[in-house]
Write a protein that binds this DNA or RNA. Structure first.
Length: 664
DNA sequence: GACCTGCTAAACAAAT
DNA sequence: CATTTGTTTAGCAGGT
């Protein structure tokens, strides 16, 4: 027990996982409570900004996982595989031309480039390129993403030389790239066909988000590189984004489309409908955000979209300069693509390695690779999981790259960037589509040793609600945890203790004496009660969400890459979308149903104090002795046994009172 | 800085 | 007697 906990917990867990990426300092050292002598509280990798090999590995794994997930998804959806001829380029036909015009044959020589680009742009470009190079090198070496590739302020002379060399290299790469495209018949070179440069250009060949960084180089005047990246990345992501830039109309359909893949290719190949979507979305434009023009190196302030369009037409018309800029962007994208490939390669190696690791033999746990659908669900079936569109995307080699297409704003990022610390409130405060999130990333959590971004309470609740009876014994809850999350297959003493602690501590968990023993149920009312009321438009939340996207230790470019690569997925046609997801998840209905306005919305709307039987119905326990009700069940709990309808959805309606607090 | 929430550790008691 | 289950207290961290 405690003793063993000591040994087992050995803190390797916390420090290693929470510390992952040293993202947040939560310096698990917190455990200090006990003041265990051996706990070098300051040891935290975060404290000194250094990580132990183990942590580093883990960190890298996390990163790799993220990248891989996205990468694989892209592949799966036929978006990026270079060799995939059949990729739906058909749809792209329209936009292609412009992009082609951009990348076309007439490659500019470095000299030309220099003529076209302004000195500052060149400078920025150079720095960016160097940064990218460094990254690549370090990645290739296996060197951790150490310190951000800050371009050393060295003599310009050197830079110029390097610049030219790099340009040459990149041009070669690009040419190869083009050749490939042409070979595949994916691109028809028709330079002249630049009908709607303004419209098509963005999504056609350029990823607006990259440009800014490139052109701004590390230290964007106004804001730290990291910041800019964050914003850029988000900007275009409808959901998460809106957060950052409220400037953009909420309408911004999830068309984050414009978020081209890390490489220009995919976009070119499959400029899905989204391309048009944002064009038509009034008030939004991939190159417009925060009231300013996002064209690389521009940053011109524009009051509104109209003005911006005008500006775009005048300042960024289809001319040599714009073309060159687009090409540069393409190069950046290509670099990222290469990087991505390397990362995914590494991931595979890692996965392969870990796969063999005998460290986690689990009964229900399948090997890292998603095996046959899921015969794994023993008892506490997880409806959501079952319905999981398993077949959609089956990551070839890396199991950890399950289907994580559409993900709710806050959560997604949270879950992504860190399994550990950041998770904290993510689930509770942001929308808590735990079920949907879970359903969507079911495979991922199941196989990847990533801490789920949910609180224990929410997880416990989820476990309980997933059962037909809405009740589970402690042991069953344990089982659910281990079955659903690879993460909980370790450090059992720790999290089990936490589970028990939560069960006891939170009023929302009701212990009911059953014939066969005691089972735990959820008092939805109480549960809702304890949740923070506001969460929708709260600026702070927004901020959280945003910050959540900054993978802490990741450097700007890398972050950008991740962000870029992840967002496009949201559009993947085949992928889940909120709607489909909800339809798939009976239970999650509630959560999914209220993605935008999590719980509070309803509750605030008209929460009758102790709405009578409703909410309680789900909580009702088979043969529950009234005793269980005692204090927390004011009304006749056993209302109309209405097991048919999933409890969850109802809890929502039947909300709780939350007189004052609930209102938001 | 106070307060709240969440996590972890740990001591203890009661039930198995 | 060893475990498991529950309860409770405490310290720490992060967010509001």
């Amino acid at each position: 027990m405690m003793v063993e906990s000591a040994s087992e917990t050995i803190r390797s867990a916390p420090s290693g996982q929470n510390g992952v990426g040293g993202i947040s300092g939560q310096a698990d050292g917190g455990g200090g409570g006990g003041g265990g002598p051996g706990r070098d509280s300051t040891t935290g990798p975060d404290s000194n900004g250094e990580m132990s090999p183990a942590e580093l590995l883990h960190f890298q794994q996390q990163q790799a996982l993220q990248v891989a997930r996205q990468f694989l998804l892209q592949q799966a959806s036929g978006l990026s595989s270079p060799g995939n001829n059949d990729s739906k380029q058909s749809a792209s036909s329209v936009q292609v031309p412009v992009s082609v015009a951009m990348m076309s044959p007439q490659m500019l020589t470095p000299q030309q480039m220099q003529q076209i680009l302004s000195p500052p742009q060149l400078q920025a470009l150079l720095q960016q390129q160097q940064a990218l190079m460094l990254q690549q090198v370090s990645l290739a070496d296996g060197t951790p993403l150490g310190p951000p590739p800050r371009a050393p302020h060295q003599a310009l002379g050197n830079k110029q030389l390097a610049f030219q060399q790099q340009l040459l290299q990149m041009q070669q790469l690009q040419q190869q790239h083009l050749l490939n495209l042409q070979r595949q018949g994916l691109v028809s070179l028709q330079p002249g066909q630049a009908s709607g440069p303004l419209q098509t250009l963005p999504q056609a060949a350029v990823c607006p988000t990259d440009l800014p960084q490139l052109w701004k180089g590390e230290g964007a005047p106004g804001q730290p590189a990291e910041d800019s990246v964050k914003q850029e990345g988000l900007d275009l992501t409808g959901s998460a984004t809106t957060a950052t830039s409220f400037a953009a109309p909420p309408k911004v359909s999830p068309s984050l489309s414009h978020h081209t893949l890390p490489n220009g290719q995919p976009t070119v190949l499959t400029p899905r409908r989204d391309s048009s979507s944002h064009e038509e979305t009034p008030g939004s434009h991939p190159l417009y955000g925060h009231g300013e023009c996002k064209w690389p190196g521009c940053e011109t302030l524009c009051e509104d979209l109209g003005q911006f369009i005008k500006h775009l037409n005048t300042e960024h018309a289809l001319d040599d300069r714009s073309t060159a800029q687009c090409r540069v962007q393409m190069q950046v994208v290509q670099q990222l693509e290469i990087q991505l490939a390397k990362e995914s390669e590494r991931l595979q190696a890692m996965m392969a390695h870990l796969h063999m690791r005998p460290s986690e033999p689990k009964p229900f746990n399948q090997p890292l690779n998603p095996v046959p659908s899921s015969s794994s669900f023993s008892k506490v079936t997880v409806s959501a999981a079952d319905s999981f569109p398993d077949g959609l995307v089956h990551p070839p080699t890396s199991a950890a790259a399950p289907v994580t297409p559409l993900r709710p704003p806050g959560l997604s990022s949270a879950s992504l960037h860190s399994g550990g610390p950041a998770r904290r409130r993510s689930s509770d405060k942001f929308c808590s589509p735990i079920s949907s999130e879970l359903a969507q990333n079911h495979e991922f959590y199941k196989n990847a040793d990533v801490r789920p971004p949910f609180t224990y309470a929410s997880l416990i609740r989820q476990a309980i609600l997933e059962t037909p009876d809405r009740q589970l014994t402690l042991n069953e809850i344990y089982n659910w945890f281990t079955r659903m999350f690879a993460y909980f297959r370790r450090n059992t003493a720790t999290w089990k203790n936490a589970v028990r602690h939560n069960l006891s501590l939170h009023k929302c968990f009701v212990r009911v004496e059953n014939v066969k023993g005691a089972v735990w149920t959820v008092d939805e009312r109480e549960y809702q009660k304890r949740r923070p009321p506001k969460m929708t438009g709260s600026p702070t939340l927004v901020k959280n969400m945003i910050s959540g996207l900054s993978y802490g230790a990741l450097n700007a470019s890398y972050q950008a890459a991740l962000a870029e690569s992840s967002f496009p997925l949201l559009n993947s046609p085949g992928m889940l979308n909120p709607g489909s997801a909800s339809s798939l998840l009976p239970l999650s209905h509630e959560d999914v149903g209220a993605p935008v306005e999590p719980l509070p919305s309803n509750g605030s709307s008209s929460p009758p104090r102790l709405s009578p039987p409703q909410y309680s119905h789900q909580v009702q326990v088979k043969e529950e002795p009234a005793e269980a009700e005692e204090d927390r069940r004011p009304g006749p709990p056993l209302g109309p046994p209405n097991p048919s309808t999933a409890g969850p959805p109802e809890d929502r309606d039947l909300e709780e009172e939350l007189p004052g607090e609930e209102l938001s």
